[in-house]
Amino acid sequence: MGKNLGKWLISGPPVLYLVVFFVIPTLIMVLASFRYPGEYGGLAPIMRHDASGAHINLTLESYQEYFSDFIYSWLFLKTLAYAVITTFFCLVMAYPLALLIAKSARKYRDLLVLLVILPFWSNFLIRIYAWMIILGPQSVFSQLLNGFLGLFGIDPVRLLFTPFAVVVCLIYVQLPFMVLPLYANLEKHDPALLDAAQDLGANGWQRFWRVTFPLSLPGIYAGIALVFIPVLGIFAVPDILGGTRGIMIGNLIKQEFLEARDWPFGSALSIVLTVSAMIIVGLAALAARRRVGRDV
């Protein structure tokens, strides 16, 4: 009894807080996606009263709206495409860095890892703002690029407020999430395996593709999951850097809540986003388990 009492006393307050400020809001949002929008924004009452009595005022309209107009699925597919491109470039850039850290002398490794983490402790908006400066029309980078393109008679290109700006910044903010799991995996590899491959006549590239790479697959899968999922819900990056062409599903959600004030539709979008993300993760985890099971 005493032990149980202690257990409730110590775990009760945090459980209660998270139930009130996380579980209940989430459930309210799920319910909101089935409600009608209020006349002046917000939500219409759940109960409707008329001459024939009280009715429950719920609807599938928001979901019907999502699936009836292809523009929403298109935006969702575009968001997925941004996430895929971002994940791919993060992997390509993170792999050599993670390998370099894993092959460095043990005393330098912690420092090198810390150097990867440090920039992403800076404020999210500051990291987006940095790219606003770099890609701005008067920036050194834009001037150099357009000067170079001019040599070939190509018209100046605009970098800021384009999908390109969005993807570059997404890669920038997500990169550490790829480096860390890759490094955690690569660091554990037994160097004797590479020596054995070398003794058996494998050259550098063969040793990498036939030994290191297959062994690092679990790290790659973890990195992909960590990079891919958060990208789906990001709205600040396209909001600041994307202009009208670069918007993502997150921008639409923000718009429905703060500008269009169609909360049921905004909630439905959020739920479609979350459920799709969960399905993608589930399928990826399944595929990963199969592959890892076969390769190792």
């Binding site: 819900g233 923000k254 959020s270």
Partner: peptide, 12 residues
Amino acid sequence: PEILVGVSLLIF
């Protein structure tokens, strides 16, 4: 995704 936490707290 963080945006969902924000949105659901707003409705709440």
